[in-house]
């Protein structure tokens, strides 16, 4: 049963998830900030766009630490790569149009929904928010449908 649900094992998934949670918990205990990752993609635009949407206080007042958070993510993944990762880096064979087009929908949808896998999935669920739970169920169902459809059509 465990082998069929988790053909690649469970320990690295659990350890990784707990580390992610420890990082979010550390930030919360020390600074009170709630670090969903999609907001940085709106707040950073406030540096270059004068549009009122991007100039909202909720973006302008948090844009600096959100960029620092993004730098931390890169740094942490780099530490993993240096110690345990494959020498030539993690490889991906997903086609360029899927990455670019899928990424566009991810950015648009996460900002419209006001959260992504970390904002709704980790921070929202951890604070027992119903809107986040509904958002998670909605994006999981849609993603499972689309991923299987794309798989049937023979793409990566």
């Amino acid at each position: 049963m465990v082998e069929s649900l988790f053909p690649n094992g469970v320990s690295h998934y659990l350890a990784g998830g707990l580390l992610i949670g420890a990082g979010v918990a550390l930030i919360f205990v020390l600074t009170g900030a709630v670090p969903g990752m999609s907001t940085v993609f709106s707040s950073t635009w406030s540096y270059v766009s004068r549009r009122p949407f991007f100039q909202q206080p909720r973006f302008v007042t948090t844009r600096a630490w959100r960029l620092v958070l993004a730098a931390g993510l890169v740094l942490g993944a780099f530490a993993w790569w240096s110690w345990f990762g494959p020498p030539h880096g993690v490889q991906t064979n997903v086609s360029w149009w899927q990455l670019l087009g899928g990424g566009f929908l991810v950015g648009f949808g996460a900002r419209m929904s006001n959260g992504c896998t970390s904002g709704h999935g980790i921070c929202g669920l951890a604070s027992l928010q119903l809107p986040s739970a509904l958002a998670v169920l909605t994006f999981l169902a849609t993603a499972i449908g689309v991923a299987n459809l794309v798989g049937l059509l023979g793409s990566n």
Partner: peptide
């Protein structure tokens, strides 16, 4: 409405590319 419609669009993109913001 945006919470749910946005989640549908996000899910479609996530299912297409397997990448989310983090």
């Amino acid at each position: 409405r945006d919470t749910i419609v946005g989640a549908v669009i996000f899910g479609a993109g996530w299912g297409l590319c397997g990448v989310c913001p983090g």
